[in-house]
């Protein structure tokens, strides 16, 4: 199956998977595990493309999603906030792939879909508010946006 191409489509697809009955998920567990991983890549591709970069085709620890996260986080420390979310996408993919006939496979697919949906919401939100600066763990100053188009140069210290 071809992965959805937009963030909104990924979110909608996650909702569909979450609502699907166990039997449907169990019947195509390996394919759905791959699809979830691919959807994670689509989200990161969208972010990196929006930033004017070319998404990498490399892999990190065997997964392109982790390489994409590393690429997106370079020079943008706030991207750390979805580091574990990306790793959880990979983890749930591996859980299902390791034993696709397990009784837990539908549950693991649903949890994987929730993790992918979180990635969608987080990065979708970042795309919307990027110009405002990040009020989070590794925020960059708003003034940088005004003066240097989000450069990583230190800002002028405000006189107290």
């Amino acid at each position: 199956m071809t992965a959805p191409l937009s963030i909104d489509a990924v979110e909608a697809r996650c909702d569909t998977l979450l609502a699907a009955p166990d039997a449907t998920l169990a019947a195509s567990a390996p394919a759905l595990a791959d699809e979830l991983l691919a959807m994670g890549e689509v989200i990161l591709d969208t972010w990196i493309t929006a930033k004017g970069d070319v998404p990498t085709e490399d892999t990190t620890e065997g997964f392109r999603l982790l390489a994409l996260h590393r690429q997106a986080a370079r020079g943008n420390a706030s991207f750390n906030a979805c580091r574990e979310t990306c790793r959880e996408v990979v983890y749930h993919h591996n859980l299902v792939r390791l034993d696709p006939t397990s009784a837990d496979a539908p549950r693991n697919i649903r949890l994987g879909a929730m993790v992918v949906r979180h990635l969608t919401l987080f990065i979708g939100g970042k795309l919307q508010v990027d110009g405002l600066g990040d009020f989070c763990c590794s925020s960059r100053p708003i003034r940088q946006a005004d003066t240097s188009n989000f450069s990583t140069e230190p800002v002028k210290v405000m006189e107290a």
Binding site: Y91, H92, L111, M114, H118, L121
Partner: peptide
């Protein structure tokens, strides 16, 4: 719990 360190959107 897979979202134990995920963003809650608190700052926004």
């Amino acid at each position: 719990f897979p979202l134990k360190t995920a963003c809650c959107g608190g700052a926004h």
